[in-house]
Design a protein around this nucleic acid. Structure first.
Length: 748
DNA sequence: AGCACGCCGACT
DNA sequence: GTCGGCGTGCTC
């Protein structure tokens, strides 16, 4: 990234005849800027950094971003081409966002042009004009209004359409609503006959119709938290809001945001993918009935995303709630950033640009000199450590609001126990007791499907994915074996493909199997299974959740989908069927994850006046980490893990960077990284570990290996990364090799 | 990454 | 004789 000059001013005075060389970031993996000429007869918009320009690039036309100007270029003048067009009057990237993208490109060692492309909505990337969101509606024309019904006796569908529009205000109906009742062909025919017409109008930014906001009185801890944050509300400060499940973190967010909105500022709220539910959004809308709130998520159409982007940039939207990528929203009047469930791993993108939205949010808040609130019931060890060091301000919300009591925990020792489809007898007994009291039971198992693998009892054959180092998962309902890492699936044959024996065993238990076992054990109790398979259909998750809340289901079996964000007041028993994975895993973050997930699942229980019981099945009931968590709480657990991390010199006591290589040929990635390591000169304070095969060595047909850089401070780490990039630019890598950086990896 | 050019095998 | 395989090289 050294090729990019540091840019200090954002506006270029025009016309500036001396500076006819434009530095453009192009969406290409080539990590360099490209110089273009400003045409002498240029008469377009005044030039500003962050504007989009259309340029010829090779034989293609691309949309690039203006990142600087100068009088001279290092490139021979006969090779320079002129730009074709400046696409924006006002740059699509506001100055703060422009700076954030530059920072991210440098920090994550990602080509700036590609980074811009990832940050921009697709419509802008393709060169479309910035325009606020419009709504399409259909309206009766005068001709359609006065048409005699008799003219349509042979076209009942068209007659119905006209009748429908006649019944509407202004004879107009939203296109999306209309398409639900009327076939597209009918609409087209009526349009072509001139009876109805399309009508585009600006979509009013969404504000709730309720006139009074819904609010509850804050308890002492919440008031204190708000005061702490509001005391320094116009300066950069990082707050770590550690509030147990049900302690009312959201109320604190809402009050802090209100303070900022009252002085005309905007707010950005980042939430994990899984927590972005209609309920979350409804709470914000109910609290701020007169403010405009928009939600950014993966399901938006290109034009909707473009519309929201433009309105954010124009500051006509007050609050943006979104997942990871919402960190790249232009918000010129940004006054506060909230990162809810800050420990959640979905803030870290795991492919292409491997950025962490939480970390970028801190950078953005620092640049904008505004407060940022990181909230969690189970803070990441990194954030917890920073608060101990005094770099983040730690605020605790210790009590649950209302009169709910915290749940009690019991460990179930699985050793020497006969398991019935993954369930210990003691757990089954407890489930029975709770069901008899007409209470709800939640069973958490972090594995979907029927069984994690299939084994032949006669010959030892194991179902294995041909493309990955992974077992095939048996799915009973579909009668298939599936790989959960690529898309591979095959029929679940009743006999062994190797020895033709019919003695095939399903090993282990997944959600499907637990569901089946429970419906046999408790045949008349309504049960719902919630995992990626059962909720594939759109809207099914919310239908299931509604069913749970109305008591239509008494047993809930599910994966992570059940663990986060949803409240089940009538659940009094939570069973965690496999807690052991986190205790002995080669991933150094596994026990932290296990603790966070365990408390999260436990937080689903006992929210009403009935106390909750959490049963945890484990083969290691004496494990010190598990016992520390359950007996002394999350803070003690975090301190214990931090001590382990310190002893092992792992983050947050060191910094990591990972380079990963993938090839279709076995061992080629390892060999290449070995060569790379040999060429890397010694750097003081930097250790180069590996290369080692990736956690899953083969995945989707690629053999994967990685080289790990570790350092006590960031400076030698980034020196090492720069060195490797230099080496990579000088040597030729084998064809088909895929390389990528992961700075601050979350797993390695 | 694209998208060209370029140089050798199986087809109308 | 041509269509097309993917090696190699370039993009201001």
């Amino acid at each position: 990234m050294a090729a990019f000059v540091k840019i200090t001013t954002l506006t270029i005075k025009m016309p500036c005849m001396q500076e006819r060389i434009l530095h453009i970031a192009i969406p290409t993996p080539l990590d360099q800027r490209f110089d273009y000429l400003l045409p002498y007869n240029y008469a377009g918009p005044a030039l500003t950094l962050g504007q989009r320009v259309r340029v010829p690039f090779g034989r293609r036309l691309l949309v690039g971003i203006l990142i600087g100007t100068s009088a001279h270029s290092d490139i021979a003048s006969n090779k320079l081409k002129p730009i074709l067009e400046v696409l924006d009057d006002e740059p699509v990237l506001c100055p703060a966002l422009f700076a954030l993208c530059q920072f991210a490109a440098t920090y994550y060692h990602y080509p700036l042009g590609e980074l811009f492309a990832l940050a921009l909505p697709r419509a802008l990337r393709q060169g479309k004009a910035c325009q606020p969101l419009t709504t399409t509606a259909y309206r009766l024309t005068h001709q359609g209004l006065t048409l005699a019904p008799a003219a349509l006796t042979r076209a009942p569908k068209q007659a119905a359409l006209l009748a429908l529009l006649r019944a509407q205000d202004n004879h107009t109906l939203d296109a999306r609503v209309l398409r639900q009742t009327t076939a597209a062909g009918v609409i087209t025919s009526c349009t072509n006959k001139g009876w109805i017409e399309k009508h585009e109008s600006l979509t009013p930014a969404t504000a709730t119709t309720a006139m009074t906001s819904t609010r509850v009185t804050l308890n002492t801890a919440q008031q204190y938290a708000c005061q702490r944050i509001q005391q320094v509300k116009d300066r950069f400060n990082i707050f770590l809001l550690h509030g147990i499940t049900g302690s009312g973190k959201t109320e604190v967010y809402l009050h802090c945001i209100e303070e900022q909105l009252s002085v005309g500022k905007q707010a950005l709220v980042l939430v994990p993918e899984i927590a972005l539910t209609p309920q979350t959004v409804a709470r914000f809308r109910a609290f701020f009935p007169t403010h405009t709130i928009e939600v950014l998520h993966s399901g938006l159409t290109d034009s909707a995303r473009l519309g929201i982007w433009c309105q954010c940039r124009a500051a006509t939207i007050a609050i943006v709630i979104g997942t990871r990528s919402a960190i790249f929203t232009p918000l010129p009047k940004l006054g506060i950033i909230i990162v809810d469930e800050e420990h959640d791993l979905s803030f870290k993108q795991q492919d292409s640009l491997r950025y962490c939205a939480r970390d970028l949010a801190i950078k953005r808040a620092k640049d904008a000199n505004i407060p940022i609130v990181l909230g969690s019931a189970t803070p990441s060890l990194e954030s917890y450590y920073q608060s101990q060091q005094g770099r983040y301000q730690y605020i605790s919300l210790p009590a649950r609001t209302g009169k709910a009591n915290p749940p009690t925990f019991s460990l179930i020792d699985l050793r020497q126990q006969p398991l019935i489809h993954g369930l210990a007898p003691r757990l089954i007994e407890a489930i029975g007791t709770h069901l008899q009291r007409a209470e709800q039971v939640l069973l958490f198992i972090n594995r979907r499907g029927f069984a994690p693998t299939v084994l032949c009892h006669s010959c030892g054959w194991v179902a294995h994915c041909p493309h990955c180092d992974a077992h095939l998962v048996k799915h009973h309902a579909k009668a298939r074996l599936q790989c959960h890492h690529c898309g591979f699936a095959c029929a679940d044959s009743p006999t062994c493909p190797d020895c033709a024996s019919s003695q095939l065993l399903a090993v282990g238990a997944g959600t499907e199997r637990v569901e089946q076992a429970l419906s046999e054990l408790f045949p008349h109790i309504p049960l719902i299974r919630i995992d990626k398979d059962s909720t594939k259909q759109k809207g099914s998750l919310s239908r299931f959740l509604a069913q749970i809340h109305t008591g239509g289901a008494q047993i809930l079996v599910g994966t992570q989908l059940l663990a986060k964000g949803h409240h089940f007041p009538n659940v009094t028993l939570v069973g965690i069927l496999n807690a052991d994975h986190g205790l002995y895993s080669c991933d150094f973050r596994a026990s932290e994850l296990m603790g966070q997930l365990l408390l999260q699942v436990a937080g689903r229980a006992g929210r009403a006046d009935k106390p909750g019981h959490v049963y945890i099945q484990t083969h290691h009931p004496d494990h010190p980490v598990l016992n520390c968590l359950l007996q002394q709480g999350y803070s003690a657990f975090a301190n214990l893990l931090l001590a382990e991390r310190q002893a092992a010199c792992l983050p947050p006591f060191s910094y990591l960077a990972l380079i990963h290589a993938e090839t279709k040929q076995a061992n080629q990635a390892m060999a290449f990284l070995q060569q790379l390591k040999r060429m890397l000169p010694a750097i003081a304070g930097l250790e180069c570990l590996g290369p080692a095969p990736a956690l899953m060595q083969k995945r989707q047909g690629y053999y994967r290996a990685q080289l790990l850089l570790q350092a006590q401070t960031r400076i030698p780490l980034h020196q090492g990364v720069d060195q490797i990039q230099k080496i990579l630019s000088e040597i030729k890598s084998p064809p088909g090799l895929r390389l990528g950086w992961d700075i601050d990896p979350k797993q390695c």
